[in-house]
Design a protein around this nucleic acid. Structure first.
Lengths: 199, 199
DNA sequence: GCGCATGTTTGCAGTCTCTGCATATTTTCT
DNA sequence: AGAAAATATGCAGAGACTGCAAACATGCGC
């Protein structure tokens, strides 16, 4: 787990660029912030910016590209006695706790995503990669074909819906409710099959 | 419902641009097709292209921006005796039938979306607008607050998942299964709460 | 039919994102 | 220290997109 100077610097630069992008865009708006501004704020050359992120939007969102793989690993580590939904709930719970711990970044992310539909699309794209891996894991776990059976692709998508809905309500409620609780509430609803609410 | 010459021409130009974009990108790939190429193919000036679509990606996807509103209207027209899920199922069924009728465009759209993650994000963004309106409708229908209660935002998102999953399986199965059937299958799964499949 | 009001198309100039390539700088390893 | 490898930077250029102003087409009242 040794991290040489080189590796540490890379992490620092990446974080600096992401935080600069997020903070500047949150304050001034997406169109009022250029890549040059972000690079200047992070004290690297504009050209270097593109060594770290393929686009301005990606820098603003700034999610770890390795994350989907770690998620898939976490799932594979769950005991095979669990049902797919149980395994997903467990992984989501850990995930939500980790996200809620980033008290600085996620509220800012959700703010800019809310203000700029283009960024919402990027964030969704980030989730999409996870969903694809998840569908494959589900198919393997249940012995079905990911491409043709309903459950893998649908449950993978629904899992994303649960998380997005929880994030949405987290922000709407001013971050007063705990994110893991909101996620759990979503799963309860999913497992209950969306019963009609009584009036 | 009268359409003057002016209005008809606009529709035709929009359709020509969309079809040119879709066809060219399907054949040559997103990066190998410039806006100038698309405009030339549709026989308008490059500048005119941007009178119709705000970006190249949007032209490739080419969904009607009015569609979310019509969807919301269709929902409001459902009898209030139906549960939210029943109403959504009914509207989805009609929707799926309409989409399956466009035997030219949807397969091409799904092909390019599959080949280019950036376009997948755009398509999802198009759906997102519908989901937002839907969440509001659900909240109004069930007398809850769209922002804070679970069901509106989650069910709106899940509805999108059902449709996306159905489209995915439609394409994976070579368009052999009817889209409405795939959508219905998804809803069955949702209503059943994703039971663990037996082995 | 004529001509004005309004909406649409086009060209032009300019900004910004993003890429390829060559060069300098930094870190690592021996 | 010095070679090897990774990283940072500068430069030039393609292509997306916008604002503006000038042509052009259409609709409408007369």
């Amino acid at each position: 787990m040794t991290t040489g100077l080189r590796e540490r610097k890379k992490q620092a630069t990446r974080a600096a660029l992401h935080e600069a992008a997020l903070r500047l865009v949150a304050e001034h708006g997406l169109d009022q912030v250029s890549v040059d501004d972000i690079a200047a704020d992070a004290e690297v050359s504009p050209r270097t910016f593109f060594n770290y992120f393929p686009s301005k939007d990606d820098a603003v969102i700034g999610l770890d590209p390795e994350h989907p793989l770690r998620l898939a690993e976490a799932l594979s580590a769950r005991p095979t006695t669990e049902t797919p939904v149980q395994a997903l709930r467990a992984v989501h719970a850990a995930e939500a706790a980790r996200m809620a711990a980033e008290t600085e970044l996620w509220p800012l992310r959700l703010q800019v995503v809310d203000a700029h539909p283009a960024l919402a699309a990027r964030l969704t794209a980030s989730f999409a990669r996870s969903e694809q891996l998840l569908a494959e894991w589900l198919a393997a776990r249940t012995g079905t074909r990911a491409e043709l059976d309903v459950q893998p692709s649908l449950l993978a998508a629904v899992q994303g819906s649960v998380m997005r809905s929880a994030l949405h309500r987290w922000r709407a409620g001013g971050y007063a409710t705990s994110l893991p609780a909101l996620v759990a509430e979503g799963w309860d609803q999913v497992e209950a099959g969306f019963p009609a609410p009584r009036h």
